[in-house]
């Protein structure tokens, strides 16, 4: 890799790489400024959806690929440990993406009728980032899991 920048001396390979990068950028259809929620926005969204509960790590399993080649459709499975009885169950599960234009991905409302606190869906990821899952229990306690996903081609 040459450290000198001489546009006229770009090899064919470098040109191709540069145009591929431009295309990938164009495909996201958003400018970098509007392409990311701020950490403050994520925090605010978590507080709002958990009713200001203290969010503790644990009980939640977040299954996502280590590397997502296509950010437009990333398979995600969320599981929460819970007996799912009338008295003790998961009431809601919220998913947040720290590097997407909007902080909340989706919110799921379940209850004892679910039998099992688990669901799977496909999500969009604009760039390499952390995904955060927060489960709110029937007693108001909140538990979370976080996972980093490396995104090869963003898809928001």
């Amino acid at each position: 890799m040459s450290s000198e920048l001489k546009p006229s001396a770009l090899t064919r390979r470098e040109m191709l790489l540069a145009s591929a990068a431009l295309l990938a950028f164009a495909a996201t259809g958003a400018t970098p400024r509007e392409a990311q929620a701020t950490p403050a926005e994520v925090d605010a969204a978590v507080k709002k959806l958990t009713n200001n509960a203290a969010v503790k790590p644990g009980k939640v399993t977040l299954e996502l690929p280590e590397i997502a080649e296509n950010g437009a459709s990333v398979p995600m499975t969320v599981k929460v440990e819970s007996p799912m009885t009338d008295k003790d169950h998961v009431a809601a599960i919220h998913i947040f993406a720290e590097g997407n234009p909007r902080p909340v991905v989706l919110s799921v409302k379940i209850g004892p009728r679910a039998g099992k606190a688990e669901f799977a869906i496909r999500i969009r990821m604009a760039q390499t980032q952390n995904v955060l899952a927060v489960a709110v229990m029937s007693d108001g306690q909140a538990f979370s899991a976080k996972k980093e996903v490396k995104v090869t081609a963003g898809g928001c």
């Binding site: 997407n100 989706l106 409302k109 004892p112 688990e118 869906i121 496909r122 969009r124 990821m125």
Partner: peptide
């Protein structure tokens, strides 16, 4: 008639969404 699973989607849900879940 009784809701057993509900979801609110935001823009980060993929196109043609596949969703799976459980119920008793």
């Amino acid at each position: 008639g009784t809701p057993v699973f509900e979801a609110d989607f935001d823009t980060s849900v993929s196109a043609n969404p596949i969703l799976s879940f459980f119920t008793v």
